[in-house]
Each structure stands twice: as C-alpha cells, then as structure tokens.
C-alpha cells in the first residue's frame, strides 16, 4: 500500500547535460550514409556486382578497383555497396517481424494477466530455453537455407525478448494511476492499451530494437558465412567473407572490406541506441 507519500523529491530535479545527442547524430549519419549507398547502389557502384572478370582475378586495390577484386574477378567495392541492400534489409525485416509479434504478445500478457499471461509466458520460457542462434540454425536447417527463412526463424524465436520487455513495462504502467483513471472513465481495453499503455512503453522498445538490429545483422551475416543464409553469388557481406576466406593471405581485401562495412553499419545502429537511451535516462 502506498498510502503514505513523499511530499517532494529530496533535491530539486536538476537535469543533466544533454548527453547522447552527439552519439545519436553520429549514428544517424552513418546509417543515412549506408541507406544512400544502398538505394543508390546502381549509381555509386562502379561495376556490376556479379560481373566476372577472369583476367582481373585477385587484383589488389588500385585506381580501377578501389577495394580490389575477388577470386572470380568481381569488384569488391561494388559488391560491398550492393551488399548493403541485403544487410540493411535483413536488419529492418529481422527486427520488425519479431517486434510486431513480441509487442503484441507482451501487451496482451501484461495487460490482461491471469491465465492468458501464464500461458503466453510459458511459451516464452520454452522458447528462451533454446540458445537463440541454435534454434535459428535448426529452423533454417529444417526449412532450408535462405534469407526469407532466416527472417521467419527470427519471427519465431526473437520475439520473446520484445515480449518480456514489453510485458515488464506494461506491468509497471498498468498500475500507474492514469491507466486506472482510464478504466474508471469507462474506456475500452483496446483504447487503453493502444492510446494509454503502448505509447508509454515504446521508448524502451525502440532503444532495444536498434541494438537488436546489430544482432540480427551479425547473426544473418554469420549464417551467410556458414552457407545457411543468403546464397552465393548474392553479394551479402557474410557470404563475401566466406568467399574470401581461402584467399585471405594473398588477397586480404576480399575479407577486410565487407567486415569494415559491417562494423560501420552496426556502429550506426548502436550509436543511435546508446544516444537515445542516454537522452531518455536524462529526461526520465
């Protein structure tokens, strides 16, 4: 019971400096650069990413091929730029699918509680009992390798993190008095959930989603590397690194540049997430 109350904060709520703005901006700039590269791949890429040039195999970086060529003479720069399309798409689709499932489940379980909650949370318990990457590999293994099956596997597996996060937040928000007030005012459950609960739990989901994108991209590229994700000759960064692995001693550029691409893209997502969470913590 919280009948007794504190009259005032112990000391005046002096806000901190606006931490995080610079990071978020830097991250957003990185992401924007990659988005432009991906959408404008046809314009920016000097070559067709799949054009074989058996004369210019394993060419080191030079004026004609800034990032060199791979074992089939394909231009690494063009493949990195086209690869952005695949990896960015993977990041977005791979976050949105589980997010949609997880947020819905979390809202329903947290708001209604009771038996619904118990059943849904049991399903969550069972899903988290499987190591994330193993279950993804198992599902992809059964459904067959490929990007679409990877996203399906994510939707089946990765939603639990969102469901837990949202449920925990809903349990807090639902006890707040404005939700009680909305119930006392006779608003329907969908109105309360969508208008009063959801907007107030979105903040932490957003922050998590940006970090999750990094995990989705890294896991997806790992699958590509293992031969279970995007299939050759698709220009996907993980696939490219797998292609370059046998030649890494004489042709380091084939592996190096896709990896750097992945780091910078991931960095964009993490910086945005970090910046947002610092800002949120300050204003909270």
């Amino acid at each position: 019971m919280t009948d007794v109350v504190s009259p005032a904060p112990v000391h005046p709520a002096a806000p901190r400096f606006r931490h995080g703005t610079i990071e978020a901006a830097l991250g957003a700039a990185l992401l924007l650069a990659w988005l432009i590269a991906a959408f404008g791949a046809g314009v920016f890429a000097p070559y067709d990413p799949n054009a074989l040039d058996l004369v210019a195999m394993l060419t080191p970086p030079d004026a004609a091929h800034w990032f060199g060529t791979d074992h089939l003479g394909r231009d690494v720069l063009s493949r990195v730029i086209y690869g952005a399309r695949i990896d960015i798409w993977m990041g977005f689709a791979g976050v949105i699918a589980p997010l949609a499932v997880g947020v819905t489940v979390g809202l329903i379980a947290g708001y209604f509680g009771g038996l619904t909650d118990t059943i849904l949370m049991r399903i969550v318990d069972i899903t988290v009992a499987f190591p994330f990457f193993i279950l993804v590999i198992a599902i992809v293994g059964v459904l067959g390798p490929g990007l679409v099956n990877y996203i399906i596997a994510l939707a089946l597996v990765a939603w639990v993190a969102y469901a837990r996060l949202v449920r925990a937040e809903v349990l807090v928000v639902k006890r707040l008095e404005y939700v009680q007030a909305a119930r006392a005012l006779g608003f329907s459950d969908p109105v309360i959930i969508l208008r009063h609960v959801l907007p107030n739990v979105l903040g932490s989901i957003t922050i998590y989603a940006w970090t999750d994108a990094v995990m989705v991209i890294l896991a997806g590229a790992s699958l590509g590397f293992l031969g279970l994700g995007a299939q050759p000759p698709t220009a996907e960064w993980g696939v490219m690194i797998a292609d370059g692995q046998p030649y890494v001693l004489q042709a380091w550029w084939i592996c190096l540049f896709p990896g750097i691409a992945m780091v910078t893209l991931s960095l964009g997502f993490i910086l945005v997430s970090d910046g947002l969470s610092r800002r949120l913590r300050v204003s909270a």
């Binding site: 990094v214 790992s222 690194i241 890494v248 990896g259 970090d274």
Partner: peptide
C-alpha cells in the same frame, strides 16, 4: 565496448586465423 559489440566474430576469426 561499443566496437567489440559491432565486430563480427567470424570475420575477426578469419583474420586472426590467417
């Protein structure tokens, strides 16, 4: 720590191994 989270393990592995 931010850099560590963004570096793909398999890529680092390939470079280290070689």
């Amino acid at each position: 720590s931010i850099l560590g989270m963004t570096i793909p393990v398999f890529w680092l592995g390939v470079l280290f191994a070689r």
